[in-house]
Simulated scan of single mutants.
Amino acid sequence: MTTPEPSSVLIATALAKTFPDQNGGLDIFNNISIHAEAGESIAIIGPSGAGKSTLLSILAGLDEPSKGSVELLGRPLSGLDEQSRAELRANHISFVFQSFQLLPELTALDNVQLALEIQGHPHPEQQAGYWLDRVGLKQRHHHTPARLSGGEQQRVAIARAFATEPSLLFADEPTGNLDEQTGTEIIDQLFELNQQLNTTLILITHDASLAQRCQRRLYLHNGSLQEH
Rank of each mutant, 00 (worst) to 15 (best):
L103S: 09
L137D: 01
L80C: 05
L132A: 01
D110S: 13
D133H: 12
F100R: 11
Q119A: 11
L80K: 08
E71H: 12
Q98C: 09
L102I: 04
S84W: 01
T144V: 09
H142Y: 12
A90P: 03
E117D: 05
R134L: 13
W131G: 01
H142W: 12
K67C: 11
R140A: 13
A108K: 06
K138S: 15
D110C: 10
L116C: 02
N111M: 02
P124C: 03
R140Y: 08
K138E: 12
H143D: 05
N91G: 13
V96Y: 00
L80I: 03
G74R: 05
P65Q: 00
S78A: 14
L59D: 03
D110A: 15
I118E: 06
Q83K: 14
H121P: 10
L72D: 01
E71L: 11
E105V: 14
S66Q: 05
Q101M: 13
R140Q: 09
R140C: 08
N91V: 09
E87V: 12
L116W: 04
Y130F: 15
L109N: 08
A60M: 08
L59C: 01
D110E: 15
L59N: 04
P104F: 12
A146F: 12
A115I: 03
G74Y: 04
E125G: 02
F95D: 02
S84N: 12
I118N: 00
L116M: 01
L59W: 08
P122R: 02
P104G: 10
Q139K: 14
A146Y: 09
Q83P: 06
Y130P: 09
S78W: 05
E105L: 14
S78E: 10
T107C: 09
Q119R: 13
S66A: 07
